[in-house]
Design a protein around this nucleic acid. Structure first.
Length: 898
RNA sequence: GGACGCUUAGCUCAGCGGUAGAGCGCUACCUUCACACGGUAGAAGUCAUAGGUUCGAUUCCUAUAGCGUCCACCA
């Protein structure tokens, strides 16, 4: 018997899903899901939880449907993030930054990785994610290293990778180049300064407006727009750069915007993307004035050397003022680029870097989606994908850090590059090239962008470059689940690199979920203090509740605003289910393998079978369409609103009828002998017994099917409850054999529901205490009212609080569907008030009828509307008219009383 | 500046050509022997605005407004 209290903690840790996760079914159709590898250093945040939960739902569902499922886990080395984090730990302790050698630092990071890598894996297990941990990989394990080197060399030899001196986004804090994608534009308060550039041998000057006066030392020209008549007379003249006294020309270039600033702009090719281009157009010098850490270098006057760029800015402004070269300064708001990891302002810088020719790789990647070989769900994300790929620029893949895949390139003494998979091979090539032994090769110091290896993850994990069985079995048959924020970083790169490396698309479906936000819709961040820790939530409400809640909120194309109360809702649902199973246990509803849902006779049983069957079908469809929210809604509705609210209430009075010769396992069997004639069933024997058995078996059956359908969403409680019911094997409910449709039985129960609801409503309206039983009788036009009332007298007694009588004096009638229910309210009825209520009801009915009539009288409607719709309208008209008639009848009868 | 998304009950969100839905909250009643993490009955919406298509529009189209996101923009 289940414990009275639903306490997820008491059983969740008892279940491990590792065995079923590692089970392979070679004969079955393969299906693969790739877990987006979390950072080694990380801990599970709520966004992971959403993504992994949705994947796990898919995976468990597919397993239940008989697929051979591979759910591949792994960890990402997360180059910059991890190195920054470990450095912070080390150097935060007083050690000076950079005091460790490359080898020493790498050793420290590996140690860190060994320690912290398990944290997130354990958290993933707590959440019940059933990936195959026996196959766990790391983006820097030996296989990955081999694959990455091979890929790099292949790309290089095919001309897709090249090394070039070029202006890139440089992060002075990290001391490395970063890719365009790692740049975040932020709007900040800033200042612009109007500076006088004196014309050579003249008192005249040009005012140049700049937000970056510290780059003044790198100026090589002042540009004005060719169409700007304010300055046209000055083009070709020279001005003097403050401090350095270098003479630079005034040039005409369309880059200068007449609307902005003074219309004259200083050109600093070494430190600005636009200026670099201007410089190229006008063959200007490039003067670098900063080092890798953002400090001014030896190309500036001595007092500024080694000064931090922001300090230098202040100093330059101060001295410009002293020199009376500063016209004025104004406060402005502008956007400037920051590094997404370091958070510092970026500095464009000209350096040697490695690039991937992403444009060439993108062509097949675009067509794969255009041709529908890969589809995004929801589809509109394809727009974003196309937009980005269609204007993709070279991808800078080299990073000047130490933690990552070292670039497999070696340099000879003369700078000759050998790109090979290993040092040995490079050495051989060097021997060939130089025609002699003993060449000293130096490996490139840089490592690769983390996303380079991430982009290869679908095939690295399957054993590429070896031609493995896994590769031919699972590759291209994957489903990827991800947030839209990494469509560029990850999805697009996997597609580009996957097609390049294997000739095939890596996956078919890309399911894009929303991002998880706090209840106000704001991004969760440590600094805002609005972070919801999924593990905390699991402890508080259970992992199932967290999973259920996330799934139920995963509506396509929308972010998820989550708070504790949302998870409570999920927990409450599971509590309800838990208690439903307790109810079943208490009433001896045990799963019976011999039970055949097609053989039941009771309309009540058929009714719930009908709804369970529909629910399971709906859940199947919802999952296939990635509508996790709909799937949970269907299960919720069936469990709570059909099974608990109605079916269980229906069967309570019937199961509680005591019966001679029956071993009744239920509790509270003794029904009050005076209770409205319930005891008359004591005269029955076999029929009641059979019905009771059917109802019990059906209850157990319904619960089992629903628990099975819930299993992908909430595996812990599902396992626990199946154990209680006595089922060990997890299966998907196979209801194809069930042939209960929306037949007479189901309609009868729907009618019963309406009768009960109407009587309850009436009683409540008249403020009749719940406990007070009223006599009731019924008239029906088409069917046998007496049989109906006899069949359900116990249900009506218990659920509606009425005692069925054959004839009633002094009754008031209500209309339910096609029937008139007479209720003996006795003195309690206020005929006048009741009449008013009915008149209101009549008014609404008449309105509804008129609306339908207008349509049915419209020839165009009859001509153009579909047949089904017309039939539907006619049926509705009939039923509404019937109701009006009945209501009229009741009003009339009230008038007699009144 | 370009693109996409959103706008439905007090709140959070489903729905989406043919009678407006859920959860929470609210009101009233109920500690009834599965469940107060509960039950019963209620109140509550011109489905952002304006046009258009249609026999019919909350649903499709166009424009507008507000909100959000991404991309581009360092004078």
């Amino acid at each position: 018997m289940l414990e009275k209290k639903f306490d997820p903690k008491s059983f969740e840790q008892n279940f491990s899903f590792e065995i079923e996760a590692s089970l392979r079914k070679p004969e079955a159709e393969p299906f693969m899901v790739l877990l987006p590898p979390p950072n080694v250093t990380g801990s599970l945040h709520i966004g992971h939880s959403l993504c992994y939960t949705l994947q796990d739902i898919l995976v468990r569902y597919k397993r239940l449907r008989g697929y051979d499922v591979l759910f591949q886990p792994g960890l990402d080395h997360a180059g910059i993030v991890t190195q920054l984090l470990v450095e912070k730990q080390l150097y935060g302790g007083g050690m000076e930054r950079g005091s460790l050698s490359r080898e020493q630092l790498l050793k420290e990071i590996w140690l860190w990785k060994e320690d912290s890598g398990d944290i997130i894996v354990n958290q993933i297990k707590i959440l019940g994610i059933s990936c195959d941990f026996s196959r766990q990989r790391f983006t820097m394990d030996d296989g990955a290293k081999k694959a990455v080197a091979k890929m790099f060399v292949q790309l290089f030899k095919d001309g897709f990778i090249y090394r070039q001196k070029k202006m890139v986004n440089w992060d002075p804090f990290i001391g490395s180049a970063i890719s365009d994608l790692e740049v975040v534009e932020k709007e900040v308060d800033g200042r612009s300064w109007h500076v006088k550039y004196m014309l050579v041998n003249s008192d005249d000057y040009v005012t140049v407006v700049t937000t970056r006066p510290e780059t003044i030392f790198g100026d090589v020209a002042v540009a004005v727009n060719p169409d700007d008549h304010r300055y046209s007379h000055l083009v070709g003249k020279m001005v003097v750069v403050p401090f350095t006294n270098r003479k630079i020309p005034i040039i005409a270039d369309k880059h200068a915007d007449m609307e902005k600033g003074s219309g004259a702009v200083k050109i600093t090719p070494a430190h600005d993307f636009n200026d670099f281009e201007v410089g190229e157009r006008h063959k200007l010098d490039i003067i670098e004035i900063m080092n890798a850490r953002g400090e001014l270098n030896e190309n500036v006057p001595e007092i500024f050397q080694k000064m931090d760029r922001f300090k230098a800015r202040e100093k330059v402004v101060e001295l410009l003022g002293k020199k009376e070269l500063l016209v004025r300064a104004e406060d402005i708001r502008h956007t400037i680029p920051f590094g997404d990891r370091s958070g510092v302002a970026l500095e464009p810088r000209i350096t040697y870097q490695w690039f991937v020719d992403a444009e060439k790789l993108s062509i097949p990647a675009i067509s794969a989606v255009k041709d529908g070989k890969i589809r995004f769900i929801p589809k509109h994300w394809e727009n974003l994908y196309f937009e980005w790929l269609s204007k993709i620029r070279p991808w800078c893949i080299s990073r000047q850090i130490w933690w990552g895949h070292r670039i497999p390139a070696w340099y000879g003494p003369d700078g000759q590059i050998f790109v090979e998979e290993s040092h040995e091979e490079a050495q051989e090539k060097a021997v060939e090239f130089y025609g002699k032994n003993g060449i000293n090769l130096t490996q490139d110091a840089d490592v690769l962008d983390t996303w380079f290896s991430s982009g290869m993850w679908p095939f690295i994990t399957l054993g590429w470059p070896d031609e493995t069985d896994d590769m031919s079995r699972y590759y291209s048959k994957m489903t990827i689940t991800t947030g839209f924020d990494i469509i560029f970083f990850w999805i697009a790169r996997m597609i580009m690199m996957g097609i390049y490396a294997t000739g095939n698309i890596p996956f078919r479906d890309v399911y894009v979920h929303g991002l998880v936000r706090d209840e106000k819709g704001q991004k969760m961040s440590k600094s805002k203090g609005n972070v919801l820790d999924p593990i905390d939530l699991c402890n508080k409400y259970g992992a199932d509740a967290v999973r259920y809640t996330l799934a139920s909120m995963a509506s396509p194309g929308r972010n998820i605003k989550i708070n504790d109360r949302a998870v409570e809702k999920g927990r409450n649902f599971l509590t309800k289910l838990w208690n439903a199973v307790r109810f079943a246990q208490m009433h001896g509803c045990l799963s019976n393998k011999k039970f055949d849902a097609n053989t039941v006779n009771s309309p009540l049983a058929k009714w719930i079978i009908y709804h369970v069957k529909n629910t399971v079908t709906d859940v199947e469809q919802a999952i296939e369409n990635y509508r996790f929210d709909e799937a949970t809604r269907h299960i919720y509705r069936c469990v709570w609103n059909y099974l608990c609210d109605w079916y269980m209430e229906f069967i309570k009075p019937i199961l509680q009828i005591s019966h001679l010769g029956e071993e009744d396992t239920s509790v509270g069997v003794d029904v009050d002998a005076d209770a409205g004639g319930c005891s008359r069933f004591k005269d029955y024997d076999l029929d009641v017994l059979l019905t009771k058995n059917d109802l019990r078996n059906t209850a157990a059956w319904a619960i089992l099917q629903l628990v099975r359908a819930l299993y992908p969403f909430c595996p812990f409680i599902a396992k626990k409850l199946m154990g209680e019911i006595g089922i060990v094997d997890t299966e998907w409910p196979d209801l194809s054999r069930i042939n209960v449709g929306f037949d007479q039985s189901v309609k009868e129960v729907e009618f019963l529901k309406n009768v009960i609801t109407s009587i309850r409503s009436m009683k409540q309206c008249l403020r009749i205490p719940v406990g007070e039983k009223l006599p009731v009788s019924m008239e029906m036009t088409n069917s046998d009212a007496n049989k109906f009332m006899a069949d359900y007298r116990d249900v009506l007694y218990r659920m509606a609080g009425v005692v069925v009588e054959e004839t009633l004096t002094q009754s008031v009638s209500i209309v339910v569907d096609g029937a008139v229910i007479k209720i003996g309210f006795g003195e309690k009825i206020d005929a006048q008030r009741e009449k008013e209520r009915l008149c209101d009801e009549r008014l609404k009915l008449v309105e509804a009828r008129d609306e339908i009539l207008i349509r049915l009288n419209n020839s165009e409607f009859l001509e153009k509307a579909s047949e089904n719709v017309i039939i539907e309208h006619k049926e509705r008209l009939e039923s509404v008219s019937d109701k009006i008639q009945k209501v009229d009848y009741v009003i009339q009868s009230l008038e007699i009383i009144g």
